[in-house]
């Protein structure tokens, strides 16, 4: 009993540590935060149940991503009448590529650095969207932008952050 407790405790700890990474993984496969969180939730249950199977010598993230991927498949099957973001072949390819990517870049601190480089109004806009979760209408009201400009600006911001993160990672390497 104590053995299984220790394993469960370890998995709980690892799950807590990597929970956000798994959510990111699921978001990239499903496109929706809420669906991703539901899937990770289910995956966590299975991970807990399979705690005894975990090989500590191997990295946790790819192992957990595999469970998450199976839950994504189950989720899609359950919601098969709904339109799916990715086709089956693309889902499989992206799932493999993204798991590798997350294992490499999981602890990247570049985002914080790159966010700080943005003008404060842009930082605030991203914070309102992602942290305070304002909807598009509220964001338009706060920023004074039209809906179209807002969406374009948000995409610009994400692209400049992405470019900054990539540059920073290259220079670090």
């Amino acid at each position: 009993m104590s053995g299984s407790n220790t394993e469960a405790e370890k998995i709980t700890g690892l799950l807590m540590q990597h929970h956000d990474t798994l959510v990111r993984y699921a978001i990239s496969l499903l496109g929706s935060e809420q669906d991703a969180r539901d899937v990770v939730q289910e995956a966590s249950i299975h991970l807990m149940r399979k705690a005894a199977d975990y090989d500590e010598d191997k990295p946790f993230v790819p192992w957990a991503c595999r469970f998450t991927y199976y839950e994504v498949l189950k989720y899609r099957e359950k919601n098969r009448r709904m339109p799916q973001l990715l086709d089956d072949d693309m889902l499989e390819i992206l799932a493999t590529e993204q798991a590798d990517r997350l294992q490499r870049d999981e602890r990247s601190e570049a985002l914080g650095f790159c966010l700080a480089e943005l003008p404060s109004a842009d930082q605030q806009l991203l914070e309102l969207k992602y942290h305070q979760e304002l909807d598009a209408n509220e964001l338009c009201e706060q920023s004074g932008m039209s809906r179209r400009s807002l969406f374009r600006h948000l995409q610009d911001l994400r692209e400049s952050l992405y470019a900054c993160i990539k540059n920073r990672e290259i220079s670090t390497v």
Binding site: A36, M90, L94, L111
Partner: peptide, 29 residues
């Protein structure tokens, strides 16, 4: 979207990177 991802590994990489960034911003504490 699926056609673009299928045809171009570079675009796939960009999609994966930007979606991951979106996820990072969502989960940023």
């Amino acid at each position: 979207l699926n056609n673009l991802l299928r045809e171009s590994p570079a675009l796939r990489q960009e999609y994966a990177g930007l979606m991951d960034l979106h996820g990072q911003l969502i989960t940023k504490q």
